[in-house]
């Protein structure tokens, strides 16, 4: 499979699983406005993934559609980061996950907007407008949790301890990314990781949160290696298409 297709699938898979996971809050948010906010964000992710899958299907060109790519691949074929698979746990962890993901997306899309690939550039510009809303929203909550009560701060710190070592997986590379970078199609994931850490450091100072110094990051993402949570989320996601092949609305 070509490197451009793999990279497109990485973006599609990340947003699909992030959206699927976040949608678990639907109808269970702490209050109405937040319930709506989280499902709005989840819907944005699904829309972005739909666009990337469409593009990937076009690149593969064997008649498969975006739905085949989203619903009918097996576990090892998904190239998403382990980070997006992590469970929601409490509200602090959910929002911390969204915060980390949208800071990553913000930098990614800002850079991808300048891509020499017209489709990447258009999709990045479009998605960036949505991500800026997510960023403002999750930042508000980071501030609330960190400056709220001892309980809210300790929950945020616990969440940070749970998920920090997976954040690096967002920046793991698919096959031959180097080549795409040299062609001006994508930004360097290594450079993005450095840029991301300095953005987080700056924000954390504002939140009065201690920046985690631990350098260890979980390995294996973007190669089809997943956490133990992934099989379960995939089961739920694929259930309808596996049970009633080809079913449509």
């Amino acid at each position: 499979m070509k490197s451009l297709t793999k990279y497109t699938l990485k973006l599609a898979d990340d947003t699909l699983i992030m959206g699927q996971r976040l949608a678990e809050w639907c109808g269970k948010g702490p209050y109405l406005e937040e319930d709506i906010a989280l499902t709005n964000i989840a819907l944005d992710y699904l829309g972005q993934s739909n666009n990337f899958y469409k593009y990937a299907a076009q690149l593969i060109g064997d008649g498969k559609t975006e739905d085949d790519l989203a619903f009918l691949r097996v576990e090892k074929e998904y190239l998403n980061a382990q980070f997006v698979e992590l469970p929601n746990e409490d509200y602090a962890q959910t929002l911390l996950k969204v915060y980390f993901f949208c800071t990553y997306q913000k930098l990614l899309y800002e850079n991808l907007s300048k891509s020499s690939d017209e489709m990447f550039s258009a999709l990045a510009q479009k998605s960036l407008k949505e991500v800026k809303y997510h960023y403002t929203h999750s930042k508000t909550w980071m501030n609330v949790f960190s400056t709220g009560t001892d309980e809210s701060k300790s929950r945020l710190e616990k969440a940070l301890e749970n998920i920090w070592e997976y954040t690096g997986s967002l920046f793991d590379e698919t096959e031959d990314e180097e080549n795409l970078f040299e062609l001006g199609i994508i930004p360097s994931s290594k450079a993005l990781f450095t840029e991301w850490k300095s953005l987080i450091k700056k924000d954390f100072a504002e939140f009065n949160l201690e920046f985690p110094e631990a350098e260890f990051m979980q390995k294996g993402s973007r190669k089809g290696i997943h956490t133990e949570y992934f099989g379960f989320i995939l089961c739920e996601l694929q259930y309808m298409q596996r049970t009633y092949p080809g079913c449509t609305w």
Partner: peptide
């Protein structure tokens, strides 16, 4: 502002 996200993707409350 009541909510940054509203009843559809294009609106806030």
């Amino acid at each position: 502002e009541l909510s940054r996200f509203g009843s559809t993707l294009c609106k806030s409350s």
